[in-house]
C-alpha cells in the first residue's frame, strides 16, 4: 500500500474503536500522508482554491472525525477492516470537500482530475457512495425527469423549478412564483435555452447532452394543426386552475415519478 502501511491502518482502527479512549492521531496522520499532495494539486489547478490547501485539509480532518464511524468503520454492524477501501473513502471525502469548498467560493468550473498534475493517484478509485445522497442522486432525478415520457412542458417545468431552487435558495412557494414569472412569456424553446444556460453555472449538475437532444426532438414535434411544440407559449399549457397551481401540479407529477423510480 503506497499511502499508509497495514500496521498504521490497524493502529488507526484500534485508536478509533477503543470506546473508552477514542483518539484521532493516526487518522489525522494517515489523512495528511495520503491526501496532502493531491489537495495541493487540486488547489493549484483551481483558481478559486489557490492557497486554500491548509483550509481544505482542516475541513477534511473535521469531516473525517465526524464521519469515520458512520461513513467507513461500521459497515453492516461490523468493523470494516479494509485498508484499500479506506484509502478510496479518504479520497471520496476529500473530493467532496473540495467540491463544497469550490462551490462556496463561487467556482463555475471545477478542476477535474484528468489532467497530468492533479490526477488521482494510481489505484485510487473514488467511491461515490458518499456522493450518492446529494449530487449523484440529484443528477439521477434530473435524468429521470428528462427521460420521462410526459408532455415536454412538464419536465421542463420541473427542471426550471429545481434550477430556481438550487440557484436562489428559495422555498417551494417562492420558486413556483419565480417559475411563473420567468417562463410566463417564454415559448418552450426559450425555456430550454434558459435551462441549458443556467445549468452550466451549477457545478454539481451534469445535464446529459443526449437527454437534452431528446427534449429538443420533442420540441420539434408538430401538433395536428402543424404548430411546432417549441414555438408554443408556456402559458398556453396552463390548466384552468391557473398558472401557479399548474406549475405546482406538474412538479408534483414529476416528483411522484422520481419517488417511484428512486424509491
Amino acid at each position: 500500500m503506497a499511502f499508509f502501511t497495514q500496521q498504521e491502518f490497524h493502529k488507526m482502527l484500534f485508536e478509533l474503536t477503543q470506546s473508552d479512549a477514542v483518539c484521532y492521531n493516526t487518522l489525522i496522520n494517515i489523512a495528511e500522508k495520503t491526501l496532502y499532495k493531491s489537495v495541493c494539486g487540486w488547489c493549484n489547478q483551481t483558481p478559486v482554491l489557490k492557497n486554500c490547501e491548509e483550509d481544505l485539509m482542516q475541513e477534511i480532518y473535521i469531516r473525517l472525525i465526524k464521519k469515520c464511524v458512520t461513513g467507513f468503520i461500521m459497515r453492516d454492524g461490523v468493523i470494516n477492516d479494509d485498508p484499500e477501501g479506506f484509502k478510496n473513502w479518504l479520497f471520496t471525502v476529500a473530493k467532496n470537500i473540495r467540491n463544497d469548498f469550490a462551490k462556496k467560493m463561487g467556482a463555475k468550473e471545477l478542476y477535474e482530475p484528468n489532467t497530468p498534475d492533479g490526477e488521482l493517484p494510481e489505484g485510487v478509485c473514488v467511491d461515490t457512495a458518499e456522493n450518492d445522497y446529494d449530487y449523484d442522486l440529484l443528477n439521477r432525478c434530473f435524468c429521470i425527469v428528462l427521460n420521462s415520457d410526459s408532455k415536454v412542458h412538464i419536465p421542463l417545468t420541473w427542471v426550471t423549478m429545481m434550477l430556481v431552487i438550487a440557484k436562489g435558495g428559495l422555498t417551494r412557494i417562492e420558486a413556483t412564483e419565480s417559475v411563473v414569472n420567468i417562463c410566463d412569456g417564454m415559448n418552450l424553446d426559450q425555456m430550454l435555452d434558459f435551462i441549458t444556460k443556467q445549468s452550466e453555472t451549477i457545478i454539481w449538475l451534469n445535464l446529459n447532452q443526449c437527454q437534452l437532444d431528446d427534449v429538443r426532438k420533442k420540441l420539434d414535434e408538430k401538433d395536428s394543426c402543424g404548430v411546432r411544440t417549441g414555438d408554443k407559449k408556456y402559458s398556453d399549457f396552463y390548466m384552468k386552475k391557473g398558472a401557479k397551481a399548474s406549475v405546482s401540479d406538474w412538479v408534483n407529477r414529476m416528483n411522484s415519478r422520481i419517488e417511484k423510480e428512486v424509491g
Binding site: 462556496k104 440557484k167 436562489g168 435558495g169 434558459f194
Partner: peptide
Amino acid sequence: TGMLTPKTDLDFFEDI
C-alpha cells in the same frame, strides 16, 4: 449543505 446556495449571483436575477 449541498442544496443551499447562500449567495445568489446577480446574473440570475437579470435572467429572471
